[in-house]
Design a protein around this nucleic acid. Structure first.
Lengths: 237, 237
DNA sequence: CTCTCCCGAAGTGTCGACACCTTGCGATCC
DNA sequence: GGATCGCAAGGTGTCGACACTTCGGGAGAG
């Protein structure tokens, strides 16, 4: 957990997006670099859904051969960011509202699990550490700094997950998170949402401190689903 | 769900193992074939943990070039069946008890979610369809046919998942399932386990029919965790 | 003017080759 | 004899090439 809140936002961003995925890159780190580059482009919206990402052009742009690019595309496909139809050009996968719902349902369930495991396994000191993130969230919300709030929120979640001490779960949630970041901008546009969220986080940390697994799980789940409903109300994708 | 119970067991097996993963093969179907071949070898235990799977030899065995084999290895890595250290030979990933626990925790949570969603979304007819699988399980348990019981159990779970109508969830559970099948033989060795399991399945289907989401989720979760505890008691891996 | 067919441009899957790296074994040295 | 070094065998990551397929536009028929 080091001291990620001291990092500036761009570094924090890449850090949070990819940490749990590193080490799964399949040997070739060149492919992983290309993968990151394109992945960031997709989640930032620079590469919109449907946009072609053909291996030949990418190979030229990165001045490598097509082999590492193909590997990168396979990694992107495994994160559901890209679709590779046989014998046809790969393209950035579309996001429809149904899929957003599916992903949020899974995330709600898994974060509830995180909360349960955390209550059972985290030390008091570790739980106290979460309060630092919560403090950041509060000050961000007070300033109305939506972007900082979002990324510190991601940091909070990551800290939670690592306290659940389940590496497999961490990897799966990270993978889901990458895909979810594509429509994040939709979920924080609504006013009042930040304050709701701050209150929920406080309730959550208190439940952790009280070692109330049931309550923590319930709050976690409702926190995620509230995010989904915000997107839904904002008119979907 | 067609009529999978009419298929003979070997077909059913491959079908159940890979259906949800098909379509994610990344264009090259040659790579997917190799992937399946090796994956089956691993989950059947023919390729034990630690066994080397280097691309050069595999290319010779399948009489292709190394490129499709490398792709297959990447797919295997994404399913956590193989580890690919940089610049070193890939090998079948070891399974330690901690990881087994991690996977079962996730599966318990996700199957609880499946049950909730199923109650909300499946039609009465679809739920009635589950009773057919349950019937198979009962007769298998009566005969003491452990192998048939296992695979029909997998079929039952698959049917449940597809009734939850969440494709993303289906894919993630299928991926977890593939890895889990590596230590399945451990979980059904204990006597009396089949009867317990049959009773649980009946309770589960009844909860579905009663549209009792809370009960169904609880039974689902306990069903999975009972499997884990069976492995644990059997002395782990 | 529209539809069809054809052909060239360009991309995909696969291949064999190459430089670099790891590994295991045998010669060498203490 | 046991540890150390070096070298050959073989694997890995990357590359450029090739056949086949798809895509898009332009010639030609209706």
């Amino acid at each position: 957990m080091t001291v990620p809140d001291l990092m500036d936002l761009p570094d924090l961003r890449r850090e949070l997006l990819f940490t749990a995925l590193r080490g799964v890159e399949g040997g070739s780190s060149l492919a992983f670099t290309i993968f990151q580059e394109i992945a960031v482009g997709i989640v930032e919206g620079r590469l919109p859904p449907g946009h072609e990402v053909n291996s030949a052009e990418l190979a030229r742009r990165f001045s490598t051969s097509r082999t590492p690019v193909r590997e990168a595309l396979l990694l992107l496909e495994r994160e559901s960011l890209v679709i590779i139809p046989p014998r046809r050009r790969p393209y950035v996968s579309p996001v429809d509202m149904a899929q957003v719902r599916e992903i949020y349902e899974i995330r709600a369930s898994l974060y509830a699990l995180v909360s349960e495991l955390l209550v059972a396994r985290a030390s008091d000191a570790e739980i106290a550490g979460l309060r630092r993130w919560q403090g950041l969230l509060e000050s961000d919300a007070a300033c109305g700094d939506v972007d900082a709030y979002f990324w510190h929120n991601v940091g909070f979640r990551n800290a939670e997950v690592s306290l659940a001490k389940n590496g497999e779960l961490q990897r799966r949630l990270s993978s889901l998170g990458l895909q979810m970041h594509r429509f994040r901008h939709l979920s924080l546009s609504l006013p009042g949402r930040l304050l709701h969220s701050v209150a929920d986080h406080e309730r959550l940390v208190n439940a952790y401190a009280d070692r109330d697994a049931g309550l923590a799980a319930a709050v976690s789940r409702s926190l995620v689903m509230r995010g989904y409903r915000a997107i839904e109300r904002a008119g979907g994708v």
